[in-house]
Amino acid sequence: MRGYNFAYLDEQTKRMIRRALLKAVAIPGYQIPFGSREMPLPYGWGTGGIQVTASVLGPDDVLKVIDQGADDTTNAVSIRRFFARTAGVRTTTRTTEATLIQTRHRIPETPLREDQIIVYQVPQPEPLYRLEASRAETRRMHALAEYGVMHVKLYEDIARFGQVAISYDYPVMVNRRYLMAPSPIPAFDNPKLHRMPALQLFGAGREKRIYAVPPYTDVRSLDFEDHPFRAGRAPHACGLCGAADSYLDEVVIDDRGQRLFVCSDTDYCAERRAAGHLGTEGVAEAAE
């Protein structure tokens, strides 16, 4: 793309972001402030993830971009095009082929490898924000590991609902030290964070924070011993490929309330169908 540097950001900015990333990797789960730039996409639409991706992307990388687990949702398309234009890198929809995956709100079903990096788009990096609005105060709480108030919230949920009522962006303890917001992935995806072989990077552009979970790091969802964390999903199988262990989207079929459940991870579903697995509504697809 004429007139712009590789992946849009100038090298100085990328260096600044990479310095922040190094600090983040050195202190797993801790939010590092960084000088987030205004990007051609609005704040809240992935500018943090885009800046992180732009800073670590190289010409030989293969990039996958997903939103809600799908490659063809409009914002994923928009971001993938952005990098195709500004970096000219190869893009893919296949998780196994990608070296760099930028994601909004899901972790792919296919387990990631050591040679992969996953970049999460984060709207709100501060896990305590609903309990304490002041960032000056939450900073102190993280420094002093004062997380009692978070457990009080869990206690309150159990007292009121009989179970913890947090279903996404479920807070986790990283490396037994820092409380972290894993981004609005469903609680179902939380177990995938634990000891993941891939490097996990988190970018919040509007809030101007970067954090990271290095490979094989301890990541545990907060819970009580007698009310252990539960990764919930809809109790159905995918209508297209029959998967009983993947996160499902609920699709409303008609105005009589008919519903179909399908894999949210479109690549995972396509791979399964290509391998011959079919659900009740599934149609065999030619292998790609």
């Binding site: 609005p42 809240g44 939103d67 949702t73 709100h105 469903p186 999903r233 809809a234 949210s264």
Partner: peptide, 21 residues
């Protein structure tokens, strides 16, 4: 405006979790 308008982006995965909960 970025954050207010980002609510237009798909949030159905998280909403699904809330539905199930």
């Amino acid at each position: 405006t970025g954050f207010v308008e980002h609510l237009k982006l798909p949030h159905y995965v998280d909403f699904q979790s809330e539905l199930e909960a």
